[in-house]
Simulated scan of single mutants.
Amino acid sequence: MKLVYVFDAYCGWSHGFSGTLREVVSRHPGIPVDVVSGGLFTGERRVPMRRFGHIEKANDEIGRLTGARFGEAYRRLAAEGSFVMDSEAAARGVAALRRTAPERAVELAVAMQNAFYLDGHSLSDPAAYRQIAETAGLDADAALAALDSPESQGEAEADFRRSAELGVTGFPTLLAVAGSHTVPLARGHATADEVDRRLAPLGIARTS
């Protein structure tokens, strides 16, 4: 069995779920986790942030429910309103970092969200990935080379297809997958304890 975490790096609720995700991984270190980009802001949804008038209210709700923080640099970006969230570019970034250190995919996905939601960095900017890689002690040049590679583009597109094939309609979604059997563990928001209760019928107990 493995966990499949379908998220979008530009999704505020995915940012809010980061604490739960880290805790679930900490409690179940023996369960592999696939990190999959879902593609929230693609096509016609790639528009300036000002077009999403609910952002500030949604962020307040996310913070209240999850304790997630939204940094001043991000708040200024959202208030100015011209920034365009491009989930395809972010998915290439996920793929590039995942290729550089596949065993640290969860940690790096969280770092990407922090880069945007705390520090206000564009996830289309290679400099953001250099900083993430260097902070994580990875080969930044290798990460940037992967960012521009056809393989990362292909993996991003494959992630979007996989998200659709899994029937994911909102982000974040955490699934337990065993062969052809899929069990939803969280959609949008859940605590680590709630995830554990949903894992229990599958015979998965907390190990740490």
Rank of each mutant, 00 (worst) to 15 (best):
G179L: 03
V36F: 01
G12Q: 09
V35T: 12
Q153I: 05
S152F: 03
R130D: 02
R27I: 08
M1T: 01
A111S: 12
V110W: 02
A156I: 11
D141I: 02
A142G: 10
E155L: 13
S180V: 10
V177Q: 15
L118Q: 13
M49Y: 06
A158Y: 04
E134L: 09
S124L: 09
D159V: 01
F160E: 04
G167E: 08
F17D: 05
A192M: 10
R104Y: 06
L147D: 10
T66G: 13
D148Q: 15
H181N: 06
G167C: 09
Y5E: 03
A190F: 12
E23A: 14
L123C: 07
A140V: 05
H121T: 07
F83K: 10
F160N: 13
V36I: 15
G19L: 09
V36M: 01
A190N: 09
A78M: 14
G39L: 06
L108H: 08
T20K: 13
H54C: 06
P172T: 14
V94H: 11
D139Q: 03
E72I: 04
V94I: 10
R76L: 13
A143L: 12
R206F: 02
A105S: 10
A115P: 08
H189A: 07
E61A: 14
T42F: 00
T182D: 02
E23K: 15
F160M: 05
K2T: 07
S124H: 07
A164M: 07
G71H: 05
A143S: 10
A78E: 15
A176Y: 14
G53A: 15
T182F: 05
G137N: 11
L118W: 06
A9N: 11
L138A: 05
D159L: 02
W13P: 00
L77G: 00
E194N: 11
A205K: 09
G188M: 14
E72P: 08
L97D: 02
A111V: 09
F41A: 13
A95E: 01
S124E: 15
R99P: 03
A95R: 02
N59R: 07
P184A: 13
Y117A: 01
G137A: 04
S124Q: 15
L138I: 06
L202W: 08
S18C: 13
G71S: 12
V195K: 06
R99A: 13
R206K: 12
F116K: 02
G179V: 08
G81R: 02
G67K: 11
V33E: 00
V47A: 12
L123Q: 07
L138G: 02
P29M: 03
A9V: 13
G67C: 10
A133Y: 03
P126Y: 06
A190V: 13
R50C: 06
L108P: 03
G137C: 09
P29G: 14
Q131L: 11
P201N: 02
V84M: 05
M1I: 06
V177W: 01
R197M: 08
L97R: 03
P102K: 10
